[in-house]
Write a protein that binds this DNA or RNA. Structure first.
Lengths: 143, 143
DNA sequence: TGCAAATGCATTGTGTGCAATGTAATTGCA
DNA sequence: TGCAATTACATTGCACACAATGCATTTGCA
């Protein structure tokens, strides 16, 4: 009858969340390295493949990343020729990030990545769907 | 009828996992800062509060962290007086990490942390339980 | 209209997180 | 038993991630 121990690792929701996130992202490294991309660059590109052009602020809101992370990330992507960064004419405070042709072309090479990762995560489709639903529910509850 | 786009951010399981993990851990920072702890130090302590003494290797396996992360982490915890590090007599390659009295005492101050975090994560108990179950299922599938 | 507050980004500092590599100790097998 | 392979840590290098701070621009309101 010792009761519930709030400080047991196994009783924390944060821990499996932390481990699952790290381990899943680690799966990406090998595949993304072939494209000379890091995981963070990859998710930034996923946004740009949809939007073509977006402000740093809007990108940060979509990715849940702040400028301390994004500014150096986008500069290195600019150095690799994947994006351009330009101060907005309308608002000099704002920086617009745009995809280059090279950045757009990388999309074709990246198309096979999700399937490769999926084959490394052998859980039933229903579980993945339910996990997805609950994670987004959690994220909205945090905002 | 454009079909399923595998490179949409919304179609990736990794992304909500990544965001949920980051955002939940960020909730811990403010509360842990009061105890002069980082999140990684906190989960290392959770193991030590249960085990009192453990090898670096075993700790790494429990936390899913490698020595590149653990060695500097444990050294800084040693500098703060929370743990001791000692080469094992039986196997000179192995380092044993042990909780000090000060490290043990910190447990009392940490007892209220999980409740504080819980109140910041307003999702139903059943959702949390299901999320927990699916995350561990995912983690075992990755090993 | 002028100025305080807000906004958008950049910078700095601290702390991970891990691959790759190095080193000393231990193990296992020919 | 001797030595190659393995093991357990430590170190290095690179890339985040974010709080705190700074700075220039813009906004809003008295």
């Amino acid at each position: 009858m010792s009761g519930f121990d709030p400080l047991k690792l196994e009783n924390q929701l944060c821990f499996p969340l932390y481990v699952a996130s790290k381990e899943v992202i680690r799966l990406y490294h090998a595949h993304l390295a072939e494209l000379d991309l890091t995981y963070t660059q990859y998710i930034a590109l996923m946004v740009l493949w949809e939007e073509k052009s977006i402000s740093v602020k809007a990108l940060g809101e979509k990715l849940f990343l702040d400028t301390g992370t994004l500014t150096p990330l986008l500069k290195s992507m600019e150095n690799k020729g994947l994006v351009t960064r330009r101060r907005s004419d309308k608002d000099e405070r704002s920086v617009t990030v745009s995809l280059t042709d090279e950045g757009l072309a990388l999309r074709e090479k990246a198309l096979c990545v999700p399937a490769k990762i999926g084959s490394c995560i052998p859980i039933p489709r229903e579980d993945a769907a339910e996990l997805y639903r609950l994670l987004y529910k959690l994220i909205s509850a945090l905002k």
